[in-house]
Amino acid sequence: MNEPLLFYALAVPAVVLLGLSKGGFAGLGALALPMLALAISPVRAAAILLPILIVQDVVGVWAFRRDWDAAILGWMLPGAGVGIVLGYLFAAQVSTAAVLALVGAISVLFGLYRLWSERRGTVAVAAQAPGWVGSLLGIASGFTSQIAHAGQPPFQVYVLPRRLPRDVLVGTTAIFFAAVNWAKVPAYWALGQFDRDTLGVAALLLPVAIASTFAGVWLVRRVSPERFYTAIYTLMVLVGVKLIWDALA
């Protein structure tokens, strides 16, 4: 567990962002891996973050356990499983930077489009997207989550235009990514990424992870539904710009 001081200086705010994301401010968590990759390899960073994500998922699912959409999960989770398998099979051939750049571009374009649509008061066609589109985006979400813990944007492209009640959106997101993160464990284990040092560093960061997730839950319940969606779309744009910048750098 002899990580450099720079790692912990980056890891603590990265885990806080993950906690806020798991608490309901979806999208912020996509910044965690690029932040840690400034100090350690992206592969090791992803392995450290996965146990933290799983613990944070427990808090998020428990907090919103009564609010979730079964239809969305039914369409998207099987696709996510396929995406995780594809991510495992092609991990060695896929550039993490390329994945981050693609996810970032999707986040920026979709976030800007939704902000523009809502400002004009127009109804997005995507709100009526059939279930098979959700399955395809589930595959994309599982794949990008397996490669770089960046599964939020594809998930949000399908789910956000449906304008679910705030707590239903947060609960559905929590359950979806809890299932996705557990499904990634065998692949990470098979790739030998869970050594003693990795798990030890993750354990050191758990108090910050749990506290920040509870803070996210507390904060999101005090934001009006209208402002909540505007905040999520704005976060998508900002996070997307950061992901593209990190990928190019």
Rank of each mutant, 00 (worst) to 15 (best):
S117E: 12
G81T: 11
A91L: 13
L102G: 09
L136Y: 13
F90N: 03
A129F: 03
T122V: 10
S117P: 08
A105F: 09
V123M: 11
L100Y: 08
R114P: 06
A98V: 15
G87Y: 01
I84R: 11
A92K: 09
G134W: 04
A124W: 07
I106P: 01
S95F: 05
A101K: 04
V123C: 06
V125F: 09
G111L: 10
A98R: 10
A140N: 01
S107E: 04
L137R: 02
S117H: 07
A126F: 08
I84G: 03
G131W: 02
V99L: 03
L137K: 12
A80G: 06
I84T: 02
G131H: 01
A126N: 08
V125R: 10
G81L: 09
A129D: 02
I139Q: 03
G121I: 05
W132I: 04
R120T: 14
G111N: 11
V123G: 05
L115W: 04
A105S: 03
R119I: 10
L102T: 08
L136G: 05
L109C: 15
R120L: 15
L137I: 07
A126S: 13
Y113R: 15
V125N: 07
V99F: 07
V99Q: 00
A129M: 09
V94G: 00
W132G: 02
T122F: 08
R114C: 11
V123H: 11
F110V: 00
L86N: 05
V94K: 05
I106Q: 00
S107W: 01
R119S: 08
G79N: 00
A140I: 05
L115H: 15
Q128W: 06
R120E: 15
S135L: 14
A129H: 03
Y113P: 04
L136T: 08
W75G: 09
L112T: 12
V103P: 05
W75A: 10
S95I: 05
V85T: 11
G104L: 04
P130E: 12
V108K: 01
A97N: 13
P130D: 11
G111S: 12
G81I: 14
V123F: 03
V94L: 14
V99E: 02
W132N: 06
W75H: 14
P78G: 07
A92I: 09
T96M: 15
G138V: 05
V99T: 11
A97E: 06
F90D: 11
L89G: 12
S117V: 14
G131P: 03
V108R: 01
V123S: 14
R114T: 15
Q93Y: 12
E118L: 14
A124T: 12
I84K: 01
S135D: 02
F110Q: 04
G138D: 03
T96I: 15
G81W: 02
S135T: 13
L137V: 00
A92W: 09
W75I: 07
V85C: 11
I139L: 10
I139V: 09
L109H: 12
V108T: 02
E118R: 14
P78V: 00
G81D: 08
R119H: 15
V123E: 12
L86D: 10
M76G: 02
S107R: 03
V123W: 10
Y113A: 14
P130Q: 09
F110P: 06
T96G: 15
A127C: 04
G134M: 01
V125Q: 15
